[in-house]
Amino acid sequence: MPLIAPLRRACLPSPSIPQRQCRHATVLRRPKRPYTFTQLVTLSDGSTYTHRTTSPAPVYTSTKDTRNTLLWNPSSQKLLTAEVDEAGKLRAFRDKFGRGWDARRMEEKDAEEGKEEEEEPGEPGEPGKEPEEREDNLMDLISGFGLEAEGKGEARGVREGKGKSGKRKGGER
């Protein structure tokens, strides 16, 4: 057999120029299809539907889908105000410094909204007043700390609050 093989190869015609017409048989392969299961998909708002999938789990419960994502629900106030805290940084901050900063931010927001509403009547004194008010409130909040820490904490808190709100707005848009 090893003697014959090189001989046969030498006798073969070049594949580019067929010597005579030939029709080889074509294999008809059975198509390969993965097994599919019927799966019940439960969306986050409780709606369900079934689909065929290769996943063997009978029920798929999604925690995040189109029903609770802001991009698909741009008018939802609930999702708009929802706080993104996936890394747990906000919670850690609250554990350490309390929730007073949240309340401050909410008040600010309310004040801004009120200001926007009241812009038409016109109140020039308001923007000038606000920093003082804020300072007072911050002083109340951090009254438990030392005098040196006051200024620092205040400055940091204000900066952080501002940065966070700006970031959040940018992210939402």
């Binding site: 998909v41 969306l43 689909h51 999938t53 798929y60 999604s62 995040k64 889908d65 189109t66 609770n68 994502t69 991009l71 698909w72």
Partner: peptide, 8 residues
């Protein structure tokens, strides 16, 4: 599947 579950 892509629109309901994956993209969000």
């Amino acid at each position: 599947k892509v629109t309901e579950v994956v993209m969000p």
